[in-house]
């Protein structure tokens, strides 16, 4: 398998990574996703990595790249379903996936995307911050 399928659902693009990615496939995915964001004018990208057992610095960088590139193309990225062992390992490795939004599962990820995109379209004077609450 050379390519990971990208599904379009409304203003979102959905990707489910079902295998441990070879580098070539990961780079193709990065390219394909950005092309699709541009072509479909998607507002959100959801990447499900629940079946991925290893995220090393290369894979982490790909996820970060996808998020940064999408943001430049006016789309938000949410990575969902990270396995606990992968999260523990990433932090010890020193990779905190800064700039990448995450959610526990697909459902929560979709909610987060909807919130972010809703927020962006309803309040135009808002800066590029995420939907964090500021009570103080």
């Amino acid at each position: 398998m050379d390519r990971i399928p990208i599904l379009k659902m409304g203003p979102y693009l959905l990707v489910t990574i079902q295998i441990d990615l070879y580098d070539r496939v990961a780079l193709n995915l990065e390219n394909d996703l950005i092309t699709m964001v541009s072509k479909t004018e998607a507002k959100g990208v959801l990447i499900d990595i629940s079946a991925v057992s290893i995220v090393d610095s290369f894979m982490g960088r790909i996820l970060g790249n996808i998020a940064s590139m999408s943001r430049i193309m006016d789309a938000e990225t949410v990575v969902v379903g990270m396995q606990p062992a992968v999260a523990i390992t990433l932090v010890e490795l020193g990779l905190t996936l800064q700039g990448v939004h995450t959610a526990l599962n697909v459902e929560k990820g979709m909610e987060l995307l909807q919130d972010m995109i809703g927020l962006h379209s309803s309040s135009t004077e808002d800066d590029e911050e995420g939907p964090d609450d500021r009570n103080d």
Partner: peptide, 17 residues
């Protein structure tokens, strides 16, 4: 354990790269 497996494999992946 799964966590230790993941740590070892990730470290191995970095070094092999």
């Amino acid at each position: 354990s799964l966590v230790n497996q993941t740590k070892l494999i990730t470290a191995a992946s970095e070094l092999v790269r």
